[in-house]
Amino acid sequence: MIWWIVKRDLLLAMRRRSDVLTTLFFFIIVVSLFPLGVGPEPNILRAMASGVVWVAALLASMLSLGRMFSGDYADGTLEQMLLSPASLAALVMGKAISHWLVTGVPLVLMAPVLGIQYDLPGEALLVLTLSLLLGTPVLSLIGAIGAALTLGLRGGGVLVSILVLPLYIPVLIFGTGAVEASSAGMEFGAHFSILGAFLLISIVFSPWATAASLRISMG
């Protein structure tokens, strides 16, 4: 069931490739703006690289949340999904996975390249990429709740940012913390453990909360 949704959403995304690319280019442009704003001093850039990449990833992931349910909502597919005997939580899980595959994975793949722009050393690049790999699925899962709650509301796009960004903060803290710990030559395993814990908790609770929110929003 989950894989059926994932396959369908991926197919839809491939038919409209520009949507995927817009999110990715938004990420790249935001990250590239910072050196222009603060100056090209390599020491400053190296210090802020993980934070900039992570914040840009949060924003990019958040901006694409609107598309998670709105297309299905507009053409009535979502209503049929709610009526179907299959578990709504599983359907939602599929939506979150495909959101991550479409927006999260390209960000993870692009992160090392952007890290090089910021003159990050090899190990920090690896840690940054791994932390994004663990963290971006959490963003999609938490974001699904916000996307479901703001479905069909006026000003939904701005509203979802107010709802979701504060909840993203723990992921941001530990994601960037891992990179900083590795740059300082310290043990960064603990940060990964906590990110992993966030991922597990959100896998368990988010589909359930999102399904409840969808039922509320669809009345």
Partner: peptide, 27 residues
């Protein structure tokens, strides 16, 4: 602020109550 702006954005009080409850419990 998120709780209040979500409730303010929804016109139907029933939906506003329930949506607010979900975001409060998540928070």
């Amino acid at each position: 602020i998120g709780f209040m702006s979500l409730q303010a954005a929804i016109d139907d009080p029933k939906r506003a109550d329930k949506a607010g409850a979900v975001i409060a419990l998540v928070g």
